[in-house]
C-alpha cells in the first residue's frame, strides 16, 4: 500500500503544481476560491438569480456578436446583403443572428426585472448606493447598445427608426445638434453613420459595459448579498433579546428617526 499512496501523493502534487504556480504569481486562485466559497445568506431566493440571468444574456450577446462581426459588412452598399447572407446562407447564421436580435430584448427585460428586485428588497441602501449607480449606468449603456445596434441591418425599419432617433437627440439644447452631427458623421444618415454606429456598438459601449459589470460584481462580492427583507432569519436582523453592550443597544433604539423601531 505504501508505494501506491506515495504515487498518489506525487500525482496530486503534479496536478496541483500549475495551480500553485499561478497562485504564487497572481493570487488569482485564492480570489476564485474566495468568490466560490464566500457565504451568502441562507434565505436567498430565486428572485436573486436575476443578476446572473442578466449576465448570461449579456454573455450570449458577446458570443453571438463576435460571430456576426465575422460576416457583417458595415457600409450602406453591403450591410443589407451581408445580413441576408448571414440569415439565409451561413450555416446556422439565422440562429446566431436570431439569438443576438432576441437576446437584446431579453437582456433589456432582465435588466429591468433585476432592478425591480433590487428596489423591492431595498438593496440599494447603505452600503450599496454605488452599486445602484453602476447598475443604472449599465441600464443606460444597455439601451444605447439597443439604439446603435438597431441601425446595423440597414433595412427600412432600422433606417427610419434611427433617422427619428438622431433627430430627437438634436432637440437637446446646446449639445444636441453637435451630438446629432457626430452620430451621423454629416448632415444626413450615410456611409459614415453606419461605421460610427458599428464602432460604438461593438467597441466603445461593450467596453464600458464589461468594465462596469466587473465593478458591479466586485461590489456584490465585497458588500454581500441581501436577505429578503421579510425573512424571519434575515442576515443582519435586529435581535431585541440578545444581550448586547448597553451603549450599542441604546444607539440602535434611538437611531433611524423613529422609522426603524417597533418590530
Amino acid at each position: 500500500m505504501a508505494p501506491k499512496s506515495a504515487r498518489r501523493r506525487q500525482l496530486e502534487a503534479a496536478a496541483l503544481y500549475p495551480l500553485d504556480w499561478v497562485e504564487e504569481r497572481t493570487g488569482l486562485v485564492g480570489g476564485i476560491k474566495y468568490f466560490l466559497f464566500r457565504h451568502v445568506p441562507r434565505d436567498t431566493n430565486w428572485m436573486q438569480t436575476l443578476g446572473a440571468a442578466t449576465l448570461t444574456a449579456f454573455l450570449v450577446q458577446t458570443v453571438t456578436g463576435v460571430f456576426l462581426a465575422m460576416y457583417y459588412k458595415p457600409d450602406p452598399q453591403n450591410a443589407y446583403s451581408s445580413i441576408q447572407h448571414i440569415t439565409h446562407e451561413v450555416t446556422l447564421g439565422w440562429l446566431v443572428r436570431g439569438m443576438h436580435k432576441w437576446g437584446a430584448s431579453v437582456f433589456i427585460i432582465l435588466m429591468f426585472f433585476h432592478m425591480a428586485r433590487v428596489f423591492l428588497f431595498g438593496a440599494y441602501k447603505y452600503p450599496r448606493e454605488l452599486n445602484w449607480i453602476v447598475g443604472s449606468l449599465l441600464l443606460v449603456l444597455g439601451m444605447l447598445e439597443g439604439f446603435t445596434g438597431y441601425l446595423l441591418p440597414w433595412d427600412q425599419t432600422a433606417y427610419w427608426a434611427t433617422a427619428v432617433g438622431i433627430n430627437l437627440n438634436a432637440t437637446a439644447p446646446f449639445l444636441g445638434p453637435f451630438l446629432a452631427n457626430f452620430l451621423q458623421g454629416g448632415a444626413q444618415i450615410g456611409p459614415d453613420t453606419i461605421a460610427r454606429f458599428y464602432s460604438l456598438h461593438m467597441l466603445l459601449i461593450p467596453g464600458g459595459l464589461i468594465g462596469l459589470i466587473v465593478l458591479h460584481m466586485y461590489l456584490v462580492v465585497r458588500l454581500g448579498v441581501t436577505s429578503p427583507p421579510w425573512s424571519p432569519t434575515a442576515a443582519g436582523r435586529e435581535r431585541p433579546d440578545e444581550s448586547k453592550p448597553e451603549g450599542a443597544r441604546q444607539g440602535l433604539i434611538r437611531s433611524g428617526d423613529g422609522q426603524d423601531e417597533g418590530h
Partner: peptide
C-alpha cells in the same frame, strides 16, 4: 445617528452571513 445605525446593521449582517450563511458554491 443614521450613519451609526447603518454601520452597526451592516456589521451585524456580515457576522450573520459568516455564521449562518451557506457557501455560494454549490448552493
Amino acid at each position: 445617528k443614521l450613519k451609526r445605525t447603518q454601520r452597526e446593521n451592516h456589521k451585524r449582517y456580515k457576522e450573520d452571513v459568516k455564521r449562518e450563511g451557506k457557501p455560494f458554491f454549490p448552493y
